[in-house]
């Protein structure tokens, strides 16, 4: 069974269709890139997949997440799906974290939630140990200091690592990352991409990686879907889509990315 199966998804607001007849399948453990520029509907698609569309946006079609129909599902049912099945990492870690809560407590929340969900109560010691475990998993240095720090006291890259740790702590089958490196420096971006690839592989999670940046997607994904103005223009393995794009739009994007690559010369 596919982990996520989106079929003929259309998202409307008023008379306008923001996403039109879009289909996407993610198998367990697959790493899929969703490429699109601003207004392409890529983030909306991801939000729709876990039933988090803002009010006023109406999804039609079918979204099966781990076998459960998301469209029309009750909030109760969706809550159970989020976290256990899919976890989200956002673009701007500063706004995704609670500014007034220490990092340790923030990471403890999804852990405690998971224990409650599984119907067992975990002691404080046990939870703290798990917090440390996940902060170690995302290769944060100086964990004692970071657990006691507030989000503004650590760097942007460290914040994104914390956000990833929180997503991992849910032990999801699917990790959805929406432009997780766009707000970061280039060297930090490289580290986070590396980390994401490793974690996804080691934890056996599937990854839906959303970005406008082709080479970034190429770093983490095996398959890509290219969206333009709410419609899929091309789908397939990264190598074939980027290597021999069929659609005009994809060609243009690949040419643009290649032009900047060429300017940089051969890889060091």
């Amino acid at each position: 069974m596919s982990l996520l199966r989106i079929e003929n998804l259309t998202i409307r607001t008023g008379g306008q269709a923001l996403v039109k007849d879009m289909s996407l399948v993610i198998e367990p453990g697959a790493r899929v890139g969703l490429i699109g520029e601003s207004g392409s509907g890529k983030s909306l698609t991801a939000l729709a997949a876990i039933g988090l569309l803002p009010p006023g946006l109406k999804p039609e079609g079918s979204i099966l997440l781990d076998g459960v129909q998301v469209i029309g599902a009750s909030e109760e049912k969706l809550k159970a799906l989020r976290g256990r099945t899919a976890a989200f990492v956002f673009q701007e870690p500063l706004t995704a974290l609670d500014p007034l809560m220490k990092i340790g407590r923030q990471v403890a929340e999804p852990i405690a939630r998971r224990h409650r969900r599984d119907g067992r109560s975990a002691g404080r010691q046990e939870i703290v140990a798990e917090v440390r475990h996940y902060l170690e998993r995302v290769a944060l240095p100086d964990i004692d200091r970071i657990m006691n720090a507030y989000p503004f006291q650590i760097s942007g890259g460290q914040r994104q690592r914390v956000a990833i740790a929180m997503a991992l702590a849910c032990r999801p089958k699917l990790l959805i990352a929406d432009e997780p490196t766009t707000a970061l420096d280039v060297t930090t971006q490289a580290e986070i991409l590396e980390l994401l690839s490793t974690l996804v592989r080691e934890e056996g999670m599937a990854l839906l990686f959303i970005s406008h940046d082709l080479p970034v997607v190429a770093k983490v994904a095996e398959e890509v879907t290219v969206l333009r103005r709410g419609q899929v223009v091309e789908q397939g393995p990264v190598r074939s889509v980027f290597g021999s794009p069929q659609h005009e739009y994809t060609k243009m994007l690949v040419d643009a990315a290649a032009a900047f690559d060429r300017a940089l010369g051969a890889q060091q």
Partner: peptide
């Protein structure tokens, strides 16, 4: 500089830029 970066930071920066496959 792109062909022969001298400083370690420049090298790190260059290596960090994601490239097309």
């Amino acid at each position: 500089i792109l062909a022969r970066p001298q400083h370690p930071y420049t090298r790190k920066l260059l290596a960090s830029v994601p490239r097309m496959p």
